[in-house]
Design a binder for these strands. Sequence first.
DNA 1: GCATTAATTGGCTAATTGGCCAAATAAGCA
DNA 2: TGCTTATTTGGCCAATTAGCCAATTAATGC
Lengths: 108, 108
Amino acid sequence: MPVAPPPLAAKRVAVLKALAHPTRLLLTEALMQGELCVCDLRALVGDDLSTVSKHLSLLKSAGVLVAEKRGLNVYYRLACDCFSSFLACVDQVCPSPQSAPTQTSACC
Amino acid sequence: MPVAPPPLAAKRVAVLKALAHPTRLLLTEALMQGELCVCDLRALVGDDLSTVSKHLSLLKSAGVLVAEKRGLNVYYRLACDCFSSFLACVDQVCPSPQSAPTQTSACC
DNA sequence: GCATTAATTGGCTAATTGGCCAAATAAGCA
DNA sequence: TGCTTATTTGGCCAATTAGCCAATTAATGC
């Protein structure tokens, strides 16, 4: 088993692709502090509401976020609470000279 | 500090985007076992040599891989040895029902 | 039911990315 | 020098993605 089997690999790619966009990464980072509704997130990133909605939908499809409708609002939150260590992982994958200088959270 | 500062965020996006492609993820996973030359990697993925070269170049630009020329061959290897725990991280970001069933390597 | 607010969906175009071919560069060897 | 092999680069076209607008759906209150 030299590499991941196709279904796992496809899932990994979906997660990575979902997060590999500045706006979507920003949205996800914002949700580290807790759930927010779409209109809050829209105000945060400044894009058109439909654009934000599509980004969120993609993140939900990938399994990164979960959505819950309460009243008129839809609240999004992280599907798992390990996203901060995931980010630490990302920062560690390549030993860049300037990034993560005072980073203490470890992944690997 | 609600979210990552622009330069760090851009770097994260670059790493994620580099890995968010089936072929590039496959190439990177293959290099977990050690360095390989471009022709070996080309045989592994089956794409045109120029396509593989461009994928590798992108991964190098993102800082995921490093290249070293020895003789006629260019050998690529992982820029950091923590890639396996990074993958474990990816698998953990969303609690999918079928993926990572017997996974013991932990990230978060 | 009708009006209002929140969010999603469809449609369209612009921009980006992917992948092949051909040409160019680089290194070793006769 | 010229030949051969390994890799990269440029160019081109197809496919995907991004983002805006308009229209639709959903929930609440009158």
